[in-house]
């Protein structure tokens, strides 16, 4: 683990406060499946908090709640948007969409393929949506794809035709191109080789240096060790369920 600056002088960009998540399975007679309870954690600028714990412990659910992708059953998830704090648990859909444009970046495990759009254009579009000027987005998309070692002959082709690893590199470039204050990463390196994992580690370090608050799930121990400033064991949040 890389030692981070401590104590942190800046307020957190992302904070879970006593968050709970459960799924009500109406198709199974309304069975309630509790996932997490009492989750409290904060991510500060320049931090990379890695979620740890066994599979099924609720890591992915936490990350999805932080992106407004899953709803919260209880508690608050506060996101700093400039001078104000927005609670994702109660925010209107439009507010969440606005945060995704300006504040929250999300790199999922798989690229959700958009038909007929070339790899570079996919990355570029994400940059423009994130506030970059078109020319800057174009340059930065090319830089990122080059660093992630995606052969240039593929840039104009739609990622639907790519291998899993190639698609994932497009996905990472897409998630990282814009400078959003909060970066959420759900196993971004799962399908990458050692060399590209190292590139991602470097990219994360650069984001941290720029003050980005990062919350992620990394299965590879080497990547986790290289990027985490702190590891939070999510199993702790399951303890509350038993109580």
């Amino acid at each position: 683990m890389t030692p981070g600056p401590s104590p942190l002088p800046l307020p957190p960009l992302l904070a879970f406060e006593d968050v709970a998540k459960s799924f009500t399975l109406h198709l199974r007679g309304g069975a309630v499946l509790p996932v997490i309870a009492g989750a409290t954690l904060a991510v500060h600028p320049g931090e990379c908090v890695v979620l740890g714990g066994a599979s099924g412990a609720g890591k992915s659910s936490l990350l999805k709640m932080a992106y407004g992708h899953y709803r919260c059953a209880a508690g608050a998830i506060r996101v700093r948007d400039g001078a104000r704090l927005v609670d994702l648990a109660t925010a209107a859909p439009r507010e969440i969409l606005a945060l995704r444009r300006t504040t929250l970046a999300y790199v999922s495990q798989f690229l959700r393929v958009i038909p007929r759009v070339g790899a570079r254009a996919v990355v570029e579009a994400a940059g423009i949506e994130g506030g970059l000027a078109p020319a800057a987005a174009r340059t930065r998309a090319a830089d990122l794809l080059a660093r992630l070692d995606l052969p240039e002959r593929l840039w104009a082709l739609p990622p639907a035709t790519f291998s899993g690893g190639e698609q994932q590199r497009v996905n990472i470039a897409r998630g990282l191109i814009a400078d959003r204050p909060i970066l959420l990463m759900d196993e971004p390196t799962a399908s990458l080789d050692a060399r590209n994992r190292a590139v991602v580690v470097d990219l994360i370090a650069e984001k941290r240096a720029a003050g980005t608050a990062i919350l992620g799930i990394f299965h590879d121990a080497d990547v986790r060790e290289a990027v985490a400033t702190r590891i939070v064991d999510v199993s702790a949040f399951r303890g509350a369920l038993a109580a």
Partner: peptide
Amino acid sequence: TGLTDQVLDDPQAAYTQL
């Protein structure tokens, strides 16, 4: 009603889940 990805991936109502 809600965000499209939220409703499709974390549906709350019994009918939506179905």
